[in-house]
């Protein structure tokens, strides 16, 4: 099966059905290993046992950016090649990415309570993640604002790409703003070089969470393809009931063609 075949939604469904059990298995094994290794990891001399929160915080923070990257590539596919599967990929990724971003914020603030003494510190990294979270929510609002999936996909693709260009600028601005206002005494997240005893569990967890994202993403894409198929069939049904079948319908959906 070549990459071109994947472009066909029906072929994608077949591949997804075959891949999903294996992806799920790899995810479970990796996450189980990661959890075991994090439980075994020693306490940090500065952060104490709270360093264990980092083992979930860092993978989620990494995924929050990675998912936006995936959506940006999919958006290019939407705008340049007008590829319907790219729409599906971008739309399915957004809620998953938003969930990971939310987890990164939540675990970050739970880490901050013992370390900083407050749940929320206007720390540069947390603030950037918060802005990213707002952008995810805005993107999801845009997806919901229109019911024609093709038009919503193109609008969302423009916003995703603009976001991808702006995210480094926002990150830079927030870092700069933070150094302007931050008292030097506050301990920064992950400021010191990581010891190997922390790095290995962290890496395993990061790979595990990445596989979790891939698994969920493939499954969510499958749902989205089915949803569009339902939509186009319902339109066929409505047309059959109304009796007048106009030629060249407006439903340029993949599901109809699939």
């Amino acid at each position: 099966m070549s990459l071109i075949d994947l472009a066909n939604p029906t072929r994608f469904l077949a591949l997804a059905a075959r891949l999903l059990p294996w992806l799920a298995l790899v995810t479970v094994v990796l996450l189980a290993a990661g959890l075991y290794l994090s439980a075994q990891a020693p306490d940090d001399y500065q952060q104490g046992a709270t360093v264990k929160i980092m083992f979930i915080h860092v993978p989620n923070a990494w995924l929050s950016m990675f998912v936006w990257g995936v959506m940006s590539i999919a958006s290019l596919g939407t705008l340049v090649w007008r590829h319907p599967l790219a729409d599906v990929a971008a739309k399915a990724a957004a809620p998953i990415g938003a969930s990971f971003t939310f987890l990164a914020l939540l675990t970050g603030s739970l880490w901050g309570r013992p370390m900083w003494g407050t749940y929320w510190e206007w720390d540069a990294r947390l603030t950037s993640v918060l802005i990213l979270f707002l952008m995810y929510l805005g993107l999801m609002a845009l997806w919901r604002a229109v019911d024609d999936p093709t038009r919503a996909a193109r609008a969302a693709a423009v916003l995703t790409l603009v976001g991808a260009i702006n995210l480094p600028i926002i990150k830079f601005s927030v870092d700069w703003w933070n150094t302007l206002h931050q008292p030097a005494s506050v301990m920064r997240m992950g400021g010191t070089a990581l010891d190997k005893s922390f790095l290995i569990p962290l890496l395993v967890m990061a790979v595990g969470f990445s596989f979790l994202f891939i698994t969920l993403h493939v499954a969510a894409m499958r749902n989205e393809i089915l949803r569009r198929r339902v939509r186009s069939l319902q339109m066929l049904q409505a047309r059959a009931y109304s009796g007048s079948a106009p030629a060249g319908s407006a439903t340029g959906q993949i599901a109809g063609a699939a």
Partner: peptide, 25 residues
């Protein structure tokens, strides 16, 4: 984006405000 969605106002604000943070800073 908002004009192609036939939605103005709030959606526009939600989309634009995060992007204007660097300018504000």
């Amino acid at each position: 984006l908002a004009v192609t969605m036939h939605r103005g106002g709030l959606l526009l604000a939600v989309l634009v405000l995060p992007l204007s943070i660097p300018v504000l800073i």
